[in-house]
């Protein structure tokens, strides 16, 4: 049996919300918790029997408890909950706000997807769904990462990495290529498909951070395939900031 008061405390569930029902599955190492609105006459009696919220029930995976996966079921809308409510999630996404934040923090530190799944006991497919939504601009990152240098801010740009002919991620050449300001002829199929995807995500991105991610993604392709991309790299050079700075010296 659950101690629902304790459960509400560790999950951060506060009035007017309460746990209306809970179920544990030892074999599947899983806990399911239903959250609804507290009955008025039971305001200070957090016992099962609170009123289920009206509307369509959503299910999100929440931060685990004692090695058990925890799933939140509720019809409470994200708009109805406080802006810092940890156990609510966005419709159509797999995780609560709290778990989403942990995942994005780890991914932001470039933790491998497999490691993220292992650390947080989440499925790769669900992480991918979250990432996909993030790329599409439907999810706000909880904590903005340090701002990357503005691509128009020449003061912060130095020279390309000495070991590489590939412009650094902050070089404006990546913005120009992605936004089609500098059209280049591409021979490799993978690069054609990648640039198309990056362009659509770049246009739809609602933050500089997402656009920075897209620039880094494109640069990563050039780093990985440098030896077979001389045709494309040769076209980048005239547009790179480092090249322009050298010419001005």
């Amino acid at each position: 049996m659950f101690d629902l008061v304790f459960c509400e405390r560790i999950l951060g569930i506060e009035a007017p919300w309460c746990i209306t029902r809970a179920k544990q599955d030892i074999n599947r190492q899983r806990v399911d918790i239903w959250i609804g609105e507290r009955e008025r006459n039971r305001w200070f009696k957090p016992i099962p029997g609170g009123r289920a919220a009206a509307g369509e029930e959503q299910v999100w995976q929440h931060l685990g408890m004692g090695g058990f996966r925890t799933y939140i079921h509720t019809a409470i809308s994200e708009q109805s909950a406080d802006h810092d409510c940890p156990w609510i999630g966005r419709k159509g996404l797999p995780f609560t706000r709290a778990l989403t934040q942990r995942i994005l923090e780890l991914l932001g530190e470039r933790t491998a997807y497999g490691v993220v799944c292992g650390l947080l006991n989440v499925d790769l497919e669900d992480v991918w769904r979250l990432k996909h939504s993030l790329d599409g601009g439907t999810v706000q990152k909880p904590e903005p990462a340090p701002r990357a240098p503005d691509i128009r801010d020449t003061a912060t740009i130095t020279t390309p990495e000495p070991e590489s002919d590939i412009p650094i991620a902050e070089d404006p050449v990546w913005h120009r290529v992605i936004s089609n300001e500098s059209e280049i002829n591409i021979r490799q199929l993978g690069l054609k498909l990648l640039i198309s995807r990056v362009r659509s995500q770049y246009v739809n991105a609602d933050s500089d951070e997402v656009r920075n991610m897209r620039r880094r993604e494109l640069r990563k392709y050039f780093v990985r395939h440098q030896r077979s991309l001389q045709h494309e790299l040769g076209q980048l050079k005239p547009f790179s900031r480092a090249r322009q700075q050298m010419e001005q010296m």
Partner: peptide, 13 residues
């Protein structure tokens, strides 16, 4: 439907 959005899908043949 989803492969075009897989992480690094276009980096590996």
């Amino acid at each position: 439907k989803n492969a075009p959005d897989y992480e690094d899908i276009f980096l590996k043949p």
